[in-house]
Measured scan of single mutants.
Amino acid sequence: TTFVALYDYESRTETDLSFKKGERLQIVNNTEGDWWLAHSLSTGQTGYIPSNYVAPS
């Protein structure tokens, strides 16, 4: 499932994924509650993102 970032997010830990508003993200795993494992289609990096910062594209 592809989502789009609603806001900028700066990672707080090394497992988080930083992203910019408008960036497209492929969700890898969304069974972890409020933090989803995502892959950035812009940077190619993978990490955890706050689910309330993204919406379906």
Rank of each mutant, 00 (worst) to 15 (best):
Y48I: 09
Q45T: 04
D16S: 13
R12I: 10
S51V: 14
N29L: 09
Q45R: 11
L6W: 06
E14L: 05
L25N: 02
R24C: 09
E14T: 09
L6P: 04
E14F: 05
T46C: 09
P50S: 04
Y7N: 13
Y48C: 04
S18Y: 08
A38W: 00
P56H: 14
D34K: 06
S18L: 00
L25C: 03
S42H: 02
Y53G: 10
T15W: 06
V28N: 03
T31H: 02
Y7R: 12
D16A: 09
T15N: 15
A55S: 15
T2V: 07
G33H: 15
G22Y: 02
E32G: 12
D8H: 13
R12Y: 05
G47W: 00
L41R: 09
I49N: 01
D34T: 03
T43C: 03
D8V: 00
V4Q: 07
T15S: 12
T46W: 06
V4E: 15
S42C: 14
Y7P: 01
S51G: 05
T15V: 08
E23V: 00
Y48N: 05
E32T: 10
A5W: 00
E32N: 11
G33C: 12
G44W: 02
P56C: 09
P50I: 03
W36K: 11
S18Q: 05
F3D: 06
Y48T: 06
G44S: 06
T13G: 11
G33W: 07
G44T: 06
G33Q: 14
Y53S: 13
D34E: 14
T13Q: 11
G47S: 00
G22S: 05
K20A: 10
A38R: 00
Q26R: 13
I27T: 06
K20I: 02
E10L: 10
W36C: 10
D34I: 15
F19D: 01
P50K: 10
T46D: 06
S51T: 09
S11K: 14
S18T: 07
N29W: 02
A38Q: 04
T1P: 01
Q45V: 05
Y53Q: 04
K21A: 13
V4D: 07
L6V: 09
Q26D: 13
S11Q: 10
T43N: 12
N30H: 14
R12A: 11
R24P: 15
S11M: 03
L41T: 11
L6F: 03
S18P: 05
V28P: 09
P56M: 08
V28Y: 09
S42T: 05
E14C: 12
S51K: 13
Y9T: 05
G22T: 01
W35S: 11
E32M: 15
T43P: 01
G44C: 04
A5V: 08
V4R: 11
P50T: 00
S18D: 07
Y9S: 02
T31N: 03
I27C: 14
V54P: 00
A38K: 00
R12K: 14
V54R: 01
L25A: 00
Y53I: 07
S18I: 01
Y53D: 00
D8I: 00
E10F: 12
R12E: 10
W36V: 09
S40C: 04
L17I: 05
Y9K: 08
T2N: 07
L25R: 00
N29R: 13
D34A: 09
K21E: 09
P56W: 02
Y9C: 07
T43S: 13
F3W: 08
G33V: 13
T43L: 02
P50L: 07
S51C: 13
G33L: 08
W36D: 02
A38P: 01
N52F: 14
S18G: 10
Y9W: 05
S42K: 12
I27M: 11
S18A: 10
E10C: 11
D34Q: 10
F19E: 03
S40D: 08
P50G: 04
Y53H: 13
T43R: 11
V28H: 05
V54W: 01
G47L: 00
F19M: 06
S42G: 11
V54L: 08
A38S: 03
G33Y: 15
N29G: 15
Q26G: 04
T31M: 08
R24H: 13
E23I: 00
Y48F: 03
E14Y: 15
T31Q: 13
N29Y: 07
F19L: 02
A5I: 01
T13L: 12
Q45H: 07
E14K: 07
